[in-house]
Design a protein around this nucleic acid. Structure first.
Lengths: 212, 212, 212, 212
DNA sequence: TATGAATGAGTATTCATTCAT
DNA sequence: CATGAATGAATACTCATTCAT
């Protein structure tokens, strides 16, 4: 039974690792995944060497941040699935609530580089697929409940998700945050089962997402 | 009647400039505004030296690309305003149609750096403000027509715009394009005047957008 | 007919390339192939950037130096083959004369890293094999002449070669140079056809060299 | 009678030191004296910390390895001097037998850095001088016996020694080992007292060797 | 005392920008 | 003018050495 890295680390090493991850998450969210490694190290209060000891190169760090974010989203989604009896409500809540998701999605999408890194990582894929499978459940249920329009699939929602929940830059952080919540609101209204007009194309399923 | 040398040179120079602009637009859209200048020059079929003769530095090029995109959007918007009698229809069409807009917005948003560059440029500001003022007209009109929900402002739409119309990468190009059109559809449904639920906060006006 | 790089280069670029190669040759010979790139650039009187423009990374430079040295050796060997009628004399002269060879062999052997780089390069292999084939001719001829002991092969000589002709460090450069010449002399006497004692093992042929 | 704590510790420490020395010897021989300290520690089965407790820095370790090798050579040489009545035989045997010598010489010569380290160390010098003095005895005796050519000195032999006995890399280990023995054989034949040709320069004495 | 984590100076490499051809 | 070579500052990454556990 080999201990997994997260468990094995010495207490201080552990603390450092967490600080680095947190710092990277913030900085990536703010300035994209190309920021100088030194800046991340500084923000985490460690030397570059320490950063590199924990994450052998930038790609490893990007991956780790993405994993961490996705994990939180998955946990959120599962808690919601437990607590809500209506799938439509679950869907709404997932969309509205997930702040972590903002970050992960943002990271995943903001840069070509990050995208390439993440797509090649089987662990990230696995996590994403788990999230999508929970989402699939919500979508099916909400359609059955008659609350979700029939002409959308989980893929549509994932894309809206990914696209909408990016950090909005606007006047002030307050406006930005308000804007984010309003966007989600409009989107949810657009999704609910009394559409004004049919959507073009066909429902996008989770299987349609990056089939490469 | 052969053109006199000066005119000939200008024509040449013009062609060069246009090639560079077109190349930069494509490459920026594809790989973000941080790509090596040399790559842009290569794509444009000129040497770096020529690129630098036309655009003194990267910022100038980013600005020029953005200007060019915004100009097209503005032209589109004005044509639409001419042709459509219903403001709601105009709004819809603007949102659905503007492919150029995708590019400009994408560029503007994709990188912190680009954002900073653009925000500090008065000409870009001016153009953007003109676009927003046309949009304001659409919004007011559509509300008056009872087609647009009352609790949104032009700022809301601009943000949705900016956020939604980003190019979706990955997936097959066909799915990506379909996804984009569907996202706009859902958003328009969400905007139309029979909301399921009130939006949080207050309408975001065009004045709320980065006044810093 | 695409011009090969050596021909195409602009005059100044050409000059720079040659200076870099010369500088690298000297410095590698003196301090091994791990010296800072910057030092090489400085010695060549160019900026690091220029060095990297010509040789994309250290490995490329190491390869280029080795190629250059081997080429000179091959040229030497062919001239000698032309001029000498006795193979034994040719062999002797090749061993005694080749100063370039010192450098190439030295470089090739001095560091694990260099060795790995060179072995994986097909062009270097090809050159080396050509040299060995000329050497094979000398060996066969010299044995037929009764001047070279029968119990050695071209591989033995190549190894002695490679091992002996390394730069000797000693008191002064003069002593070092004298030492080198004396070593070769002793070796040649040891090779000549009146041995005091049989050698262990069996003749090493050129085929025995790095069979991996 | 259980060992008292202090003795136990010493034994431990001793074992550690020996393991490190052995590991360093192997790794230096294989990859040169520039390998990461961490790699040496790993090979020795200890942490870097322990390595540094025993040897304050890399130089100290290099010195220790060299000392250890030289000591073994000296012991060999003295045993040989005891056992052999003919100086020429003693010389031959020393050259043929000393495997340890391979290592020490290799280490001493392979890198500029190591050379500098060793040359500045009085203890290493002392050892080396003792070896040379034994060698001087062999040389003088063998000349008197008429077995060693008159035109060489102990310095010539030391240099041949140092140069020839370097570990041959590449090839199969078997060929490499055979090659080493054959080189020594050729060299010995070249040294024996029926030279085909006079050597250039003058005999190199042990005093000629790096007196700087 | 042994361990391995943290540090940061040293190097490799890239790329925006300038300038000779 | 167009070109692409040269420059060097910025940044990634490695590894010797120190120090907390």
């Amino acid at each position: 039974m080999t201990a997994d890295p997260e468990t094995t680390l010495r207490a201080d090493a552990r603390r450092n690792r967490d600080q680095i991850l947190a710092a990277a998450k913030n900085i990536f969210a703010m300035s994209g995944p190309e920021v100088p490694m030194e800046e991340i190290a500084r923000a985490a209060g460690v030397g570059v060497g320490t950063l590199y000891r924990r994450f052998p190169d930038r790609d490893a760090l990007v991956r780790a941040v993405a994993m961490d974010n996705f994990e939180r989203v998955l946990i959120d989604a599962r808690v919601i699935a437990e607590e809500e009896t209506s799938s439509w409500r679950a869907l709404e809540r997932l969309l509205r609530q997930s702040v972590e998701l903002q970050l992960s999605v943002q990271l995943a999408m903001v840069s070509h580089r990050a995208l390439v890194i993440l797509k090649s990582d089987p662990e990230v894929r696995r996590l994403r697929d788990e999230i999508l499978s929970v989402l699939d459940g919500f979508v099916d249920g909400a359609k059955a409940e008659g609350k979700l329009r029939d002409d959308v699939g989980a893929g549509d929602i994932a894309i809206l998700f990914a696209t909408l929940l990016r950090q909005m830059r606007a006047k002030s952080p307050e406006v930005a945050e308000m804007a984010a919540r309003r966007c989600v609101g409009i989107m949810i209204d657009g999704l609910s089962a009394r559409p004004g007009s049919a959507l073009p194309g066909r429902p996008i399923t989770s299987g349609d997402l990056d089939p490469d």
